[in-house]
Each structure stands twice: as structure tokens, then as C-alpha cells.
Simulated scan of single mutants.
Amino acid sequence: MTSSGTGRCWQVRPTSRSGVGRLPGVELAAVADPDRELLDRIATCHGIESCYRDALALIDDDSLDAIILATPDEQHVSQAMAALERGRHLFVEKPLASTWEEGRELQQLAVSHGVLLQVGMILRYEASHRWLYSQIEAGLFGDLVSFRGQRNCSRRSFQGIADRIHTVHRTLIHDIDLLLWFSGSQVISVMAMDYRQGSHLSPNGCLAMLKLANGCVAQLESSWYVPDHSPVNVISDHWSGCIDAELAVVGTQRSARINGLQSPLQVWTNQQLQSPDLSLWPSINGRVFGALREQLADFLGCVASGQSSKVADVKSAVEALRIAQAVVEACRTNTVVSLNS
């Protein structure tokens, strides 16, 4: 951070731009995007002077204190490594990497260079999930008996990820992270099966059963078959569609459910029913609110204080990658994968 307390950072995701640029004490100093027209529009809108067509060129900018990396998933590891090696504090959208080994290497690299590394597990900052976590942490649920996470997405969105990233790393990673967060326990074994159409890298659907050291059993499900005319609950300037998400937690004393599809706001148009999510990254009059804003504020606050996040620790993000890798392996081999070691 500069002596005046103004942070300088870079990011590319449209919602992140609005979220960062309006945080107090933060200067959105540079941006990179390969699309020249989009880059010019961003720079004009946010008054940014330093613009790059290449992420690595921006990472070389020594005037920056922190970088927010929201590039395509397959670019995360190489770009994150470059940023950490240059001593930049770094926020990376999930997934941190596509393998546990790569994630652990990035974690160790951050430690060796004395910089902060944080991963965008946004649901830890969403109000319903954060409130539920506080109740579980306070012991009000007793011992956790079961955890069920469902995250099914629009059919038309599958082609955009089919050969870029595995479903486990794209969607199921959120629920793996929530399981680790809520349970405070380790996953010791994994069973999983997938459903495939074609020879894509990613399966069209995946179902996993996980056993935890504390006795809790978890069921996680994700697929890409939500019909085209389902209610639209994700509406942004770069993507719209449906994420049919649900979380159910059963404890010995209480149980709870979060339904991510049902918004209190519903809008009917001639083409569709819109049920816009108002908790993750709602954009209103050019300002972004919700969990995304809270997440970025936490990261930049940590950069300013020099302290790691108390909400989203990189150790958990790396452990989630280890579990994700076990799910992929269980699908491939049709066997139970042990994680006791």
C-alpha cells in the first residue's frame, strides 16, 4: 500500500471493477484485457490511465500493491505464479488451480515471498451462509449429521466450460469449501460418479458422497441440465442464466436449508421469469453490492493490515483442491478414494 493508504490493484471481471473502484481508500490503478474496445471503455468509465492488453505486462508494473486475478480458469496458475514471484499481494478467483499440487505450490510461493494469497470462495461472504456458519460455530446445531449441496446450472452454459475446466472445479468446489467451513473437519473418503455426453474434459453431471472424520456424511451434486426457460437468477453485464443451488444441513439439535433459486424479487417479461439474486453481486446504478463487495473489501483490508483473512484462508482453498482431485479420481476409477493421509 502507498503511504497515503491508497491501494493500487488490477482486475478484469466487470463486476469486480465496479466493486473495487468504489471501495474507500482504494485506487483502481490499472486494468488488462485483450479486447481493445472493452479495455478503452473500462478505462474511460473508471478513469484508469494504465491499460494493458496482456496480464503478464500488467503484473510487471511495480507501482501496483495488489492484483485481483479474474482471468480464464486455465490461466490462473501461470499468472498467479508470476504475480507472487514479483511480490504482489494476490486475490485469485476460484479455482486457484486445477490440481492440489499446483495449489500447494502457489501457497508455498506466497509464504516464501511474504505476500498475501486469497482465493475467491464468495459464498463465505454471502449473508445467509455466513449467518448459518455463525450458528453452527456457536454449537447451536450440535454435532453435524449430514450436509447436502446442490448446484445445477443452465444447459446453455455448458459449452463455455466443457473443454476448459472440470465440473468439480467449476461448480462443486463451492460446496466442498462450504463443507470444510461448516464442519471444521477433514474429509477422509470419497465416492463419486459422473454423467457424460461426448468426450469433453468436463462431465455434464457429477454426484459425490464424502465421509468426514467427525462422522458427518455429505452429498454433493452438480449438473448442466437446467432448461433454457427456467427462472433467470444470475443477471450481470457479462452472463445471465440459472444456478439452481440448495444447501441442507442437519445437526443433532437443529437443521437448516438455504435455497439459492428463490429471490424475494420476481420480474415477468415477455421472454422469461427473472428472479435476480440480490446477495452475491447485485449491480445497482453502477455500484456492486453483496458478497462480492464484502469479499474484495476483506482482501484489500488484509493487504492494508498485513494480516491474512479470518474468513477465507488459503489453507482451506488448497485442501478443497485436494478433495476435488479425489472426486475426479473416484469418478475415473469407480472406487472409494481414501484421504486419511
Rank of each mutant, 00 (worst) to 15 (best):
L39E: 08
D40Y: 04
D40C: 08
D40W: 03
R41G: 11
R41H: 12
I42D: 08
I42R: 05
I42H: 07
I42F: 08
A43H: 07
A43Y: 03
A43L: 08
T44D: 14
T44F: 11
H46L: 11
H46C: 02
G47I: 02
I48H: 07
I48R: 08
I48V: 12
E49C: 09
S50K: 14
Y52I: 00
Y52S: 09
R53S: 10
R53T: 12
R53I: 11
R53G: 11
R53F: 13
D54I: 14
D54P: 06
D54G: 08
D54M: 09
A55C: 11
A55T: 14
A55R: 10
A55G: 10
L56P: 02
L56N: 10
L56W: 01
L56R: 10
A57E: 15
A57C: 13
L58T: 07
I59V: 15
I59E: 12
I59T: 11
D60K: 08
D60E: 14
D60R: 11
D61Q: 05
D61S: 02
D62Q: 15
D62W: 00
D62Y: 05
S63P: 03
L64C: 06
L64R: 02
L64K: 05
D65G: 11
D65C: 06
A66P: 04
A66D: 07
A66R: 04
A66C: 10
A66L: 03
I67C: 10
I68Y: 05
L69P: 07
A70P: 01
A70N: 14
A70R: 04
A70H: 03
T71R: 09
T71M: 05
P72I: 14
P72Y: 13
D73V: 15
D73C: 13
D73H: 11
D73M: 12
E74A: 11
E74W: 15
E74D: 12
E74V: 15
E74T: 15
Q75D: 14
Q75Y: 15
H76T: 06
H76D: 06
H76E: 05
V77L: 09
S78Y: 15
A80I: 06
A80M: 06
A80C: 10
M81A: 08
M81P: 00
M81W: 06
A82R: 12
A83D: 04
A83R: 03
A83Y: 01
A83G: 07
L84F: 02
L84W: 02
L84G: 03
L84V: 07
L84I: 10
E85N: 14
E85K: 15
R86S: 03
R86I: 08
G87C: 13
H89M: 09
L90Q: 04
L90M: 06
F91V: 04
F91G: 01
V92I: 08
E93H: 14
E93D: 13
E93F: 10
K94Q: 08
P95C: 12
P95N: 10
P95K: 09
L96A: 04
L96N: 05
A97V: 05
A97H: 02
S98I: 15
S98W: 00
T99I: 06
T99M: 01
T99S: 13
T99Y: 00
T99Q: 06
W100P: 05
E101M: 04
E102F: 01
E102I: 04
E102D: 14
E102R: 07
E102H: 09
G103I: 05
G103E: 02
R104P: 03
R104V: 00
E105G: 09
E105C: 08
L106T: 00
L106M: 02
L106I: 02
